[in-house]
Amino acid sequence: MAGYLIRRLATAIIVVIGITLVTFLMLHIVAPEPALTILGPKATPAAIRAFNHAYGYDRPWYEQFITYLNHLLHGNLGDSPKDNQTVVSLFKEKAPLSAFLSGVSLLVAIVVAIPLGIYQAVKRNSVGDVTATTVAFIFYSMPVFMVALILIQIFALSLGWVDPNVSQDQTLGGALSSWPELVLPIVALATTTVAAYSRYQRSASLDVLAQDYIKVARAKGLPDRLIYTRHLIRNASLPMITLIGLSLPALIAGNVLIENAFNIDGLGLLFVKSLQNDDYNVLLGYTLLTAVLTVIGNLIADVALTLSDPRIRLV
Rank of each mutant, 00 (worst) to 15 (best):
S102L: 15
Y119F: 13
D83C: 02
V135I: 15
T192G: 05
L90Q: 00
P143V: 00
T191H: 07
L116Y: 02
R202H: 09
A99S: 08
V104E: 05
G75K: 08
I138R: 07
A132S: 14
V135Q: 09
P115Y: 13
I110K: 04
I114T: 00
L116G: 00
Y200P: 00
V87D: 00
A156Y: 11
A113N: 00
S203H: 05
S167V: 09
P180F: 10
K94Y: 02
A204L: 11
Q153K: 13
T86Y: 01
V111S: 04
W161Y: 11
D129G: 04
K82I: 06
S105T: 05
A95H: 04
S203T: 07
G160F: 11
Q153T: 10
S89R: 07
V130F: 11
A204I: 05
L149Q: 13
S126Q: 13
A175L: 13
S203N: 12
L97D: 00
P96G: 03
V111K: 05
A148D: 03
K82E: 06
F100S: 01
P115A: 10
S105C: 11
D169F: 08
V183H: 14
A99W: 10
L107E: 04
L182G: 08
V194W: 10
A190I: 12
S198R: 12
G173H: 12
P81T: 03
W161I: 14
V166C: 07
N76T: 03
S203A: 15
A196M: 12
T131R: 09
S177C: 06
K123G: 00
W179C: 09
Y200H: 11
S141F: 08
V162K: 07
Q201E: 15
G128T: 05
G117H: 03
T192S: 08
L73M: 11
E93S: 08
V112C: 02
L182K: 13
V112Q: 01
S158Q: 12
L184Q: 09
W179H: 07
L149W: 11
S89I: 02
A136S: 15
Q201V: 10
N165E: 08
P115G: 08
A148G: 06
A121S: 03
A188T: 05
E93I: 02
A113E: 01
F155Y: 12
V166Q: 07
N125R: 14
L101I: 12
H74V: 10
F139V: 03
K123V: 02
T191F: 09
Y119C: 04
A132G: 04
S89E: 12
L73N: 03
I118R: 01
K92T: 01
W161P: 05
S158N: 13
L172S: 05
V87F: 01
L182P: 06
G78Q: 12
Y119G: 02
I138F: 15
E181C: 09
T192D: 03
G160Q: 13
F137M: 12
I138P: 03
V88N: 01
V88R: 04
L189N: 02
L151C: 15
F137R: 05
K92Y: 04
L157E: 13
A204Y: 04
A99D: 03
M142I: 01
G160S: 12
I138H: 06
Y119K: 13
L157C: 09
A188W: 06
